[in-house]
Amino acid sequence: MATASPTDPSRHGVGIGLRWEFIDDLLERIAVGRISKKDIPFFEFAPENYLRRGGFIPEALDRVGEHFPLVSHGLHLSLGSVAPFPSEYMRDLRAILAHVAAPWHSDHLCFSGVDGRSLHDLLPLPQTDGAVLHVARRIREARERLERPMAIENISWYLRAGAPELDEPDFIANVLEEADCGLLLDVNNVYVNSLNHGFDAREWLERIDVTRIWQLHVAGHEWRASEGLIIDTHGQDVSDPVYELLRSTVARTGPVAVVLERDSNIGDLDTLLAERRQLQAAYDAGIAVYEAAHAVERARA
């Protein structure tokens, strides 16, 4: 039995990742009442960008948090690393999560460095039983030290990190079970991996226990001829297949927090809001399927 999702209706629907590129515009709109939760239900922020920081940036986060619910999504817990968590980092992270009253915290199912080095990227873990037990222990430790429920995100990966004993859905399922945590399911990452590694994204997604899904991510990707791979750049519009995977996933999960991630070629806030509305339509279509299926179930009952 999975730990109940800590999500609440205020964070259902499609939110946007908070970025500097549009923060001035956003604050101006907040100041004059030209944006509200009707336009965007919530924002996701990366706490590492606010650690040990004063001035305009954290003040802006506070201002946004006064008007919109926030969810936190971390970049550098390095949950799979064999190195211990840095104490100062964990202390600062706990403080900011408490400051914004984050309902849960998520980070990636990966490692980002070892032996005191920080690569600031998401490197894959070997899909082995040993790695499952190690990362699950680390997730439990993080939950204790951060004093918040934890969710993990499936990553895009470009290199097989050792000989697998499990395939990716089983690896993730086992981590979720051992750690008793939530899943931040990045639909775009599943799609990118399916193209790079040759599997069916829908079949992959159907093997995920929807009761573990606390949040979804969607983003854009691009083909890099130099690498011969699709790279998860977060720099393009969300592709049509990812829209469809979002719709079919929400049809299984029901109401859930979805975040549009955009980290390069961000454009202006109006453009992002327009893409958000398109994603919200896909989300609503998925919810309609979910509601219809549950109405049938209720009628049978």
Binding site: G80, S81, V82, F111, V114, D115, L123, L125, P126, T128, D129, G130, A131, L133, H134, A161, G162
Partner: peptide
């Protein structure tokens, strides 16, 4: 052994 193997991959 699990940790030794994992550390070798990460390093």
């Amino acid at each position: 052994d699990d940790l030794t193997r994992l550390a070798a991959v990460q390093r």
